Computed example of a mutant assay.
Amino acid sequence: MTKTILLAVSGSISAYKAADLTNQLTKLGYDVHVLMTEAATKFITPLTLQVLSKNPVHLDVMTEDKPQIINHIELAKQADLFLLAPASANTIAHLAYGFADNMVTATALALPTKTPKLIAPAMNTKMYDNPITQNNLKQLHEVGYQEIVPRSSRLACGDVGRGALADLTTILKAVQVIL
Rank of each mutant, 00 (worst) to 15 (best):
T4N: 12
L6R: 01
L6F: 02
L6C: 00
A8K: 04
A8G: 07
K17M: 09
L21P: 00
N23H: 14
L25N: 00
T26K: 12
T26G: 04
K27S: 11
G29D: 01
G29F: 02
Y30V: 10
D31A: 14
H33F: 05
V34H: 05
V34K: 04
V34T: 07
L35K: 06
L35I: 09
E38T: 12
L47K: 10
S53P: 07
K54Y: 04
L59R: 04
L59D: 01
D60Q: 05
D60W: 06
D65E: 15
K66T: 13
I69M: 13
I69F: 14
I69T: 15
E74L: 14
Q78Y: 07
A79D: 06
L81R: 03
A85R: 00
A85F: 02
A89N: 08
L95R: 04
Y97K: 10
D101Q: 03
D101F: 07
V104G: 01
V104E: 00
T105I: 04
T107E: 06
A110R: 00
L111V: 05
L111N: 00
T115K: 06
K117W: 05
A120V: 13
A122P: 11
D129E: 15
D129T: 13
P131H: 08
Q134A: 10
N135Y: 06
K138C: 11
Q139G: 03
H141L: 05
E142P: 01
V143I: 15
G144L: 01
Y145V: 05
Q146N: 09
E147R: 08
P150N: 03
P150D: 05
R151Y: 12
R151T: 13
G158N: 12
D159I: 09
G161N: 11
G163V: 11
A166N: 07
L168M: 08
L168E: 07
L172K: 02
K173T: 14
Q176S: 11
V177N: 13
L179S: 15
